[in-house]
Design a binder for these strands. Structure first.
Length: 354
DNA sequence: ACCTGTCAAGTCTGG
DNA sequence: CCAGACTTGACAGGT
């Protein structure tokens, strides 16, 4: 089983490369020249996109095949007070350049809209903002010219004291999204509300792939289910509804999208399942993310699924970002050298297990 | 150079 | 019904 590692948003090793510089609305409103202020926002976004490209270059030269884009590329992009502002046209070239680099380097990219995007909500204005937020993310993918293997990952959301009702409300509100958005979505199990088993059931009904977060599962698993026992079902969500499924069903644009990509995992027609991994910060804060990732629990999970899984992509969600990724690779290399015959180092950020 | 309170946004808990 | 916690990176304003 091929295992590829990636990291989230920013690097702790690259200097002055923040992809998420911002301007707060409070500060924006202090500026008297609105035109000038909007131009400032565009300038910040351009800088964020240039830094994103440096981060992608860092990935490419470190063999990192997986990267999560920050949701904060354009400051105040979906703010209500800026509803009449269209930043996309002015940034089209910058997004196109990033997208071209992504396609050429074959890096698998995603977004993870933050916890304000929640489709289980009973509140109309929260739903409205959630839709707006997803449209914004998909718009950025489209400006980058990336096909539907570039996905947005969200959680099911809050339960409001009645998980059953909240789950049904999620399905009806999420299901009302435009197909072009739904086709780019994945759902992740939560560390407090919807468990992995519940998220899997909802993912199947919604017709989208599921991302398994093994740390969230460890801290939100009241039924005590072993994660590998859910794996067949999770893996099937990628085969049934994901990129492969789209193509098998002959969904619109499939053939055309295939030709638009090149290199590595982008060209072989396979989108491996994705999992998230992090390590509890401490016994008192088990849900928090530690600086680095402990190899052992991850390795035993990977060994458990290796027999039934050709490839899996692992997103590292550690506080020390890319440094944690490299340290984990060091640990895997050391384990292989110490005699673990089922671990083979493939390159700077991937291993073969089993 | 470094520190602290604040930031556009949501939900949950406890009072 | 409302305040505070939760959580993340970065700004803003202070020393």
């Amino acid at each position: 089983m091929l295992v590829r590692f990636g990291f989230v948003a920013m690097s702790v090793l690259l200097e002055n490369a923040s992809p998420s510089r911002t301007m707060t609305y409070t500060n924006f409103s202090k500026l008297t020249d609105r035109e000038g202020a909007l131009l400032r926002l565009v300038r910040i976004a351009q800088e964020n996109l240039q830094h994103t490209q440096r981060l992608l270059s860092h990935c490419k030269y470190s063999d990192i095949h997986l990267y999560r884009l920050t949701s904060k590329l354009i400051p105040l992009a979906t703010h209500d007070a800026l509803a009449d502002w269209d930043p996309y046209a002015m940034l089209a070239d910058d997004f196109a350049a990033v997208g071209a680099y992504v396609r050429e380097s074959g890096i698998r990219v995603s977004f993870h809209p933050d916890h304000f995007t929640v489709f289980s909500t009973p509140r109309p204005e929260v739903l409205r903002n959630s839709i707006k937020d997803l449209r914004h993310h998909v718009r950025m993918f489209e400006l980058m010219g990336l096909d539907e293997r570039a996905t947005c990952n969200i959680h099911v959301g809050g339960t409001y004291g009645d998980k059953e009702t909240a789950g049904r409300r999620f399905l009806s509100q999420f299901g009302a999204l435009e197909p072009r958005i739904v086709r780019r979505m994945t759902l992740e199990n939560d560390d407090k509300t919807f468990t992995a088993a519940e998220t899997l059931a909802i993912s199947r009904e919604a017709g989208v792939p599921m991302v398994l977060d093994i740390h969230h599962h460890a801290v939100n698993n009241p039924a005590g289910i072993a994660p590998e026992s859910l794996w067949d079902g999770i893996q099937r969500t990628w085969a049934d509804f994901g990129w492969n499924g789209l193509r098998r069903d002959g969904a619109e644009g499939g053939a055309e999208l295939r030709g638009a990509s090149s290199g590595g995992a982008w060209s072989d027609g396979v989108l491996p399942p994705k999992i998230h991994v992090s390590t509890p910060k401490s016994a008192t804060d088990p849900r928090g993310h530690a600086d680095h990732v402990a190899m052992e629990p991850l390795l035993s999970f990977l060994r458990a699924i290796a027999g039934s899984t050709p490839a899996v992509d692992v997103m590292i969600e550690a506080k020390r970002k890319d440094e944690a990724l490299f340290r984990l690779m060091d640990d895997l290399r050391a384990a292989a050298e110490a005699g673990a015959a089922d671990i083979r180092i493939m390159d700077g950020a991937s291993v073969e297990i089993g």
